[in-house]
């Protein structure tokens, strides 16, 4: 069963690129990812560019509206994700808890729906 772990954190208070903290975090992400590969649970996983690079589309009444954003109104923004292949929720939660951002942000774990043809 596939689970997605959505990583939310506050971009304003996240470790800044170049800082010692940031370098440490990258190291932690690297070893977490290695562990996911080693255990054979990693399907995919990537960080996202800053929320400032987001563009939102809304199609209403035949019109397509394109807007900049979403702006960072909410405290935490989606910053990356992992997809795990696990037998059950306990395993998925165990791996999600290893994602370094759990310490300063939050991780949302959801099963990915299987479409039966």
């Amino acid at each position: 069963m596939k689970y997605i772990a959505l990583i939310y954190s506050n971009e304003k208070t996240d470790p800044k690129p170049g800082s010692d903290e940031f370098i440490k975090m990258i190291g932690e992400y690297r070893s977490a990812t290695d562990k996911f590969i080693e255990d054979g649970v990693l399907v995919a996983g990537d960080p996202l560019e800053s929320v400032n690079t987001s563009t939102t589309l809304r199609g209403r009444g035949g019109n397509l509206e394109t807007t900049d954003g979403p702006f960072a109104e909410t405290k935490e923004q989606l910053g990356g994700y992992y997809i795990f292949e696990c037998d059950n929720l306990d395993d998925a939660l165990k791996y999600a808890a290893m994602i370094p951002s759990v310490k300063h942000g939050s991780i949302e774990v959801r099963p990915i729906m299987t479409i039966v043809e």
Binding site: M1, D87, N88, L89, D90, R110, P111
Partner: peptide, 10 residues
């Protein structure tokens, strides 16, 4: 069911 919470003793 949907999240496959396992039926086990932790």
């Amino acid at each position: 069911k949907q999240t496959a919470i396992p039926y086990i003793i932790p």
